[in-house]
Design a protein around this nucleic acid. Structure first.
Length: 476
RNA sequence: GGCCCCAUCGUCUAGCCUGGUCUAGGACGCCAGGUUUUCAUCCUGGUAACACCGGUUCAAAUCCGGUUGGGGUCACCA
């Protein structure tokens, strides 16, 4: 796996890393992480850190590395000198302007875009270093996923190897490293197919052995072109911040381009390692479908043990200003003190509703802050019969007052309130009750709400509802 | 434009290599129904595809050719 630290860990890079990981682990091979930072201009340490952190977060581990190409410059130089000395490579005398003109000319004459140097035998020691490409005929390689791929050697021209002896370019550094690190399988994106014949030519010039290749299908945006910034979130860090679980994201990414034998789609990383094979990788690109990711993430959220889920959720609640930490307890926005158990109950109630962890704050704000709502919210099916609402609220209040705080469980509450609700009509009683507790059109049911909020807060919210003018004035 | 890659429901895909069991299976989404005071969960059902043309064959989603369409790539980036 050889990412380039010129940006944050991209979904596509992560997918390539994941498949490399799954393959090497399945084959009990050695997985090497190589940082391709030969472009000093664009490479940054913070990107390297982001890539490594993101990979680890996803559960991807490696045996060797990170090995940085920038620290191996003398190795490339040695091989480059060898090519230069033997005449297999040369310094090109053409300047960028003339190359640009040549390209334009080739464009209009509908011929392949390539540079065949007219001055290969120069003794100059300056200028870009190119491979002297005398090869003819087909360059053929077998792709594990796609089968045989053939390209005419002449169409490649004298492509570039290095800016100068101390600054190798991608294709050259790649070939040297693959050999030096004893890489057996090159698993990378489909966008690298055009590089492969070039690298094979370099291998031949250097006398290196052939490698096995597998070119993965691309991850596509909505318009079916390579996923890019305009497709929304493209970095792993963004998905992490949005509240996607690493297990869900890894599972989802694996499903883009790979499928197990049967109908099963949910796999842990270890199960993926067991099931994985390059032969079952798809040839065509896969559109990134956020809806399916959301579904998978929801599945993983629901499977999470309660304390773990709470632990994941707490940072989002803090960020939203709904709670602050006070020792081993929490202070709510409306000034109450609640414990871990309170948070666990909320996690349990919201778990079936969460697609992303970041959804939590907006959903459960009313557990930590006084709900604000209009009187109309309390009317069941839109009939604004505030008098009946008032009567039902009063009755529920009486019932609630008579329950011991220690018996404030959903079951106990249901047992004493349901008979009344049945008598008056469930919706007539339960809807306004639920609404005054949550301040929302949709929420968990009122018994769970009361049990979680506790007797005091339940009564406080009933009082607050009764102080709303329409409800207050409804009393005769 | 040259070269290369690809082509099954809207999306991810199974099936294709080893033609018949495919009136093409699963999942997401969507729609409908059930459970339910609301929402979600859960359960049931439904929706929807072999790009096109030709060839081989008793038989083609599956093999071959072409067309069309889509994508990738052509840097002193990786």
């Amino acid at each position: 796996m050889a990412p380039s630290p010129t940006g944050f860990l991209h979904i596509g890079t992560a997918r390539t890393a994941l498949f490399n990981f799954l393959f090497t682990r399945h084959e009990s091979g050695v997985f090497v992480l190589r940082i391709e930072d030969t472009d000093l201009e664009r490479s940054e340490k913070r990107f390297e850190d982001d890539i490594i952190n993101g990979l680890h977060w996803l559960g991807i581990t490696w045996d060797e590395g990170p090995i940085r190409q920038s620290e191996r410059l003398d190795i490339y130089e040695t091989h480059l000198r060898q090519l230069l000395d033997s005449g297999k490579a040369f310094h090109c005398t053409h300047d960028p302007a003339s190359l640009e003109a040549e390209k334009k000319e080739q464009m209009t004459s509908k011929s392949p875009l390539r540079h065949i140097c007219t001055d290969r035998d120069t003794k100059r020691k300056e200028g870009i270093i190119r491979l002297r490409n005398d090869a003819t005929g087909d360059i053929m390689f077998n792709d594990i996923i796609r089968g045989n791929i053939m390209v005419k050697a002449e169409e490649l021209g004298d492509f570039s190897l290095a800016k100068n002896p101390k600054t190798p370019l991608f294709n050259f550094a790649n070939v040297v490293d693959d050999y030096d690190m004893q890489i057996s399988h090159v698993i990378r994106g489909e966008d690298h197919i055009p590089n492969t014949p070039r690298q094979i030519l370099i291998q031949k010039a250097l006398g290196f052995p052939d490698l096995a290749y597998a070119h993965l299908p691309l991850i596509l945006g909505q318009d079916r072109s390579k996923m890019s910034k305009r497709d929304g979130a493209t970095s792993i860090g963004e998905y992490r911040a949005l509240g996607y679980l690493p297990e869900a994201l890894a599972n989802f990414i694996a499903l883009m381009g790979w499928h197990a034998t049967g109908d099963r789609e949910i796999f842990s990383l270890n199960e993926l390692v067991q099931e994985f094979s390059l032969e079952r990788v798809q040839k065509s690109g896969a559109v990134f479908d956020i809806e399916k990711l959301n579904w998978l993430n929801a599945e993983y959220i629901r499977k999470l043990p309660l304390p773990d889920l709470t632990m994941h959720l707490v940072p989002y609640l803090i960020d939203a200003g709904l709670i602050t930490v006070e020792g081993d307890r929490y202070r709510t926005k409306d000034g109450r003190t609640v414990d871990q158990e309170y948070l666990n109950r909320i996690s349990a109630l919201e778990a079936p509703r969460l697609k992303r962890l970041s959804d939590i704050a907006e959903r459960v704000a009313f557990f930590f802050d006084t709900p604000q709502y209009e009187a109309d919210l309390l009317s069941w099916k839109g009939k604004q019969d505030f008098q009946t609402i008032r009567q039902n609220i009063d009755e529920v209040e009486k019932i609630v007052r008579n329950i011991e705080s220690s018996n404030f469980s959903p079951e106990d509450l249901k047992e004493v309130i349901m008979p009344f609700a049945e008598a008056k009509g469930r919706g007539e009683v339960l809807w306004p009750l639920r609404a005054l507790l949550s301040g929302k059109e949709a929420s968990p049911d009122p018994f769970d709400l009361m049990a979680t909020l506790g007797k005091d807060e339940t009564l406080a919210r009933i009082q607050r509802a009764k102080s709303i003018p329409q409800i207050q004035n409804a009393i005769l």
